[in-house]
Design a protein around this nucleic acid. Structure first.
Lengths: 119, 119
DNA sequence: TAAGTATATGCTCATATGGGAATATGTCAA
DNA sequence: TTGACATATTCCCATATGAGCATATACTTA
């Protein structure tokens, strides 16, 4: 079974640096039309449109026709599951205690490894 | 310029569901060797090894030789930049106030687009 | 209606991916 | 040593991607 259709989920959509750039831009400056994004991100128009297409498909942005231009607006709520997923790991670098525990485990394993075998 | 080598960064590494599963497992149960992961995740051994390879390359896990098996251990700190990036969007779904503000910005921008310059 | 502007799409190309199967490598046990 | 186990790597294949270019679409304005 080859790779699954990727750009169909938020994690993959956001894995593309330029798509993150687009989201950043929309978050910072509010709704923007395509040409404006093209100018601020220094990308070709088709490239921007395609990335916006991916973001739209996963619901991270929505577009409203505004004459012949299209206003894209951030729909950040779709990032929530991702935020929740990463947040589950927050404790690993936040709490001193966990850091210590983790290091201790590390040492134990290293110690074990050192003595069980000779490499 | 075709696509950039992807699995070279954390965002991409984590875009793969099975790789997230591996990280989840390591986070929940602590260090694990490959066969154990193979069994709990119901994936083939080569598949697991390959995914671990990607995770290792981006620093999300580290391995210590433990006899003929290899103990993989989570290195969640690498997720921090990602956590920080997503967190910047947290306000969009957390605070009622921001939600309202966002809509207001949206309207303002729409208004501007309609009335200001023609590109 | 005919240009002109703003966006979206289609096509092609080079490359990345992930899985499966087979195999290499390294390690332990008898 | 030899054979069993644990893990990594290689090869092949089908498919996904992203970029550039050209073109289709839509709306707007002269």
């Amino acid at each position: 079974m080859p790779r699954a259709p990727t750009t169909a989920d938020v994690f993959n959509a956001v894995a593309e640096p330029r798509r993150r750039a687009i989201l950043d831009e929309l978050a910072r400056r509010g709704p923007r039309d395509v040409s404006r994004l093209v100018r601020s991100l220094h990308l070709s128009q088709p490239t921007v449109s395609k990335h916006l297409g991916v973001l739209r498909r996963v619901g991270l942005v929505s577009a409203t026709a505004e004459g012949r231009r299209r206003l894209y607006r951030l729909n950040a709520a779709q990032l929530r599951p991702m935020h929740e997923w990463v947040s589950r790991f927050e404790r690993f670098w936040t709490h001193q205690l966990d850091r210590i525990k983790q290091r201790a485990e590390g040492r134990a394993a290293a110690h074990r490894a050192e003595h069980t075998t000779r490499n």
